[in-house]
Design a protein around this nucleic acid. Sequence first.
DNA 1: GGCTTCAATATGTATAGACATATTCGCTCG
DNA 2: CGAGCGAATATGTCTATACATATTGAAGCC
Lengths: 238, 238
Amino acid sequence: MSVTEGTLSQRIRSEVEDLIRSGAWAPGRKVPSEAELMARFGCSRMTVNKAMSALADEGLIVRRRRAGSFVARPRVHSTVLDIPDIQAQILTRGEAYRFDLLDRRRRKARAGDADEIALAAGGALLALRGLHVAGDRPFALEDRLISLTAVPEAAELDFAEESPGAWLLHHVPWTEAENRISAVSADAAVADLLALDAGAALLAVERRTWRAGQPVTWVRQLFPGEAYDLVARFGPAR
Amino acid sequence: MSVTEGTLSQRIRSEVEDLIRSGAWAPGRKVPSEAELMARFGCSRMTVNKAMSALADEGLIVRRRRAGSFVARPRVHSTVLDIPDIQAQILTRGEAYRFDLLDRRRRKARAGDADEIALAAGGALLALRGLHVAGDRPFALEDRLISLTAVPEAAELDFAEESPGAWLLHHVPWTEAENRISAVSADAAVADLLALDAGAALLAVERRTWRAGQPVTWVRQLFPGEAYDLVARFGPAR
DNA sequence: GGCTTCAATATGTATAGACATATTCGCTCG
DNA sequence: CGAGCGAATATGTCTATACATATTGAAGCC
């Protein structure tokens, strides 16, 4: 993954970071103590401390005195853009949540589509379509592709209980993501599924995610425009 | 602003950070050297260094060997959500940019509106409406309120040359912001201004910003849905 | 058994000193 | 006057050491 270069403390940091982001060190796992790391890298504790403090600031590890350092459990909120877990969001509003799987098929990447080819990485894709339902009103229509190369376990699941988004969030943490947000008009088929009039304004969120550089999933979610706000907050973290 | 508490290096850091965020230290200004700060706070260089390195990591200051540390010029891109400077974005696409001011008035906060009252902070507001134009096509419709308490200089400007957004970006850097993104249908008046059919899907971005806790501006921008994408990327910064 | 107490442990912060490195300033020489 | 060179300066990183502090785990006591 990373090239081992730069200062010593940067090397220590990126070595540990790679192990976490790749999933080799799962959330909750104990990270070697500063004493162990200073032995491993042959340096002083302050150098190790600088690396580990940086990882803690980033939220990748949690440090507890006497207990040690541990790989953090990923926060459900992405740090900035409040979109990841539709289910959790609906539940905190006190509404019942349901995910209706409309379609599920296993297929190869389409020949013309560079994104799909990159996502499949030589293997197969899982293509899903489903509806997030809040109470008894449709909340979002979701089309998703999952790389079975990156996440072979997904092949066994039927996503009747847990939505694919929630499942991925819990099983493939520490992903990088790119979001693309736009507004579109509902065509007849989509309007029907979301119980709207044709032509209604929809918020479209398209997201691609990677894990340690490898594509994991692509998803496009369509929300009724007036029913949903994305909120992003910037500024002093503390 | 901040309460002076916590560790010494945190205190140094937050003291400098406040001076920058409040605007007391303008972009480009020299920050005291480590030697000066260690004299001022009566501590060792490593302690000062830790504070200043953190500010540099955050992007608030730029450090150059031998030259010293300087308050950074704010990056045009917000770290994560790519919306701030419409003008710059249009220009990089090679199109001509123009801002047409449609309306400009100075008024008090409306009695019923808590947001407006907070924004005015006892003083007056500047209410603006304008159109961002790319080439000769309308690109976005903008409604904006500026607090003349927070930014009294704005009272003198007519925003014929520079859009209010660009002006604020250059004169009131280091703001915190909250974005709210949704999709709406164009009503007749808006559709007319944006040269669209009534009912077309629009992307609505509503943003409030603060400077050191004080409200600065509120803005609502409406983009033709199919003409614009917001892109946000998360993940390893490096 | 359940409670308190105490020592071991891992991290948190700070210090003083050392050497490295980039950059700037000023001096000298052509 | 300009180019080149060396000294001064501010930051960058690392070390070894010290003491503080939270927390755990075990020993001891009722």
